[in-house]
Amino acid sequence: MIRAKSVDPVSYFVDIKNAATGVLITSFTLNALAAKLSKNQTLVLRGTIGGTGTAIPGSFLVNNY
């Protein structure tokens, strides 16, 4: 389950939760001023649920331009 909300017109906060349990897996903040929102971008989810070390859940943005 992915839920995004905007508190101000500049930032978007994305929470990625386990759909079965509702537990937060990771979150991501997108700053609209820093990101080119008129271009395609991909939010990548990495890691595994319950992972440790390099397998810990996380997210990052990839520019597709």
Rank of each mutant, 00 (worst) to 15 (best):
V62P: 02
T52M: 04
K5H: 02
R3P: 01
S11R: 13
G58R: 11
I25L: 07
D15F: 03
I49T: 10
S6G: 12
F60W: 10
T29W: 03
I25S: 00
Y65M: 15
N31D: 07
L61F: 04
T21N: 06
G53R: 11
T29N: 13
G50K: 14
Y12A: 11
F28R: 14
K17Y: 01
N40V: 13
F28M: 14
N18F: 08
M1C: 10
T42F: 03
K5F: 02
K36Y: 00
A19W: 06
A35I: 12
L33H: 03
T48I: 15
P9W: 02
T26V: 11
Y12D: 11
L30H: 04
P57G: 06
V23M: 15
A20K: 14
L30E: 01
F13A: 13
N63D: 05
D8W: 09
F13V: 09
T42P: 00
K39T: 07
P9S: 06
D8I: 14
N64H: 03
N63L: 07
G47P: 03
F60I: 05
T52V: 11
P9D: 02
A55T: 11
K17T: 05
Y65T: 14
K5G: 03
I16A: 10
G22P: 01
V23P: 01
G50W: 03
A32F: 05
A32M: 08
V44S: 07
L45G: 04
N18D: 12
K36P: 00
G22H: 07
Y12P: 00
L24T: 14
T21E: 02
G58H: 04
A20W: 07
T48E: 08
T48N: 08
N40E: 14
Y65N: 12
F60V: 04
V44M: 07
K17E: 02
A19I: 14
G58V: 05
V7A: 07
V62R: 13
G58M: 12
T42L: 11
A34Q: 14
P9L: 03
T42Y: 07
F28E: 01
K36C: 00
G53P: 01
T48L: 12
Q41A: 13
F28L: 13
T21V: 06
T48V: 14
A19F: 11
N31Q: 08
L45T: 06
G50N: 11
R46I: 11
G47I: 06
F13W: 15
N40C: 08
T48F: 04
K17Q: 05
L30D: 01
D8K: 15
I25W: 00
G47W: 01
P57A: 03
M1Y: 06
P9Y: 00
S27K: 15
V7F: 05
A19K: 15
A34F: 09
K39F: 02
F28G: 02
G22M: 10
M1V: 06
L45D: 00
A55F: 07
I25D: 00
F60Q: 09
N64R: 07
V23D: 09
P9R: 10
G22T: 10
S6F: 09
F13S: 15
G53W: 00
Q41L: 07
F28A: 06
G22W: 04
T54D: 10
G58N: 13
S11C: 08
R46W: 05
V7R: 09
G47M: 05
P9G: 04
I56A: 12
T52F: 05
I49V: 12
A19Y: 08
S59P: 04
K36V: 02
D8L: 15
L61T: 09
V62E: 05
V7S: 12
V10A: 04
M1E: 05
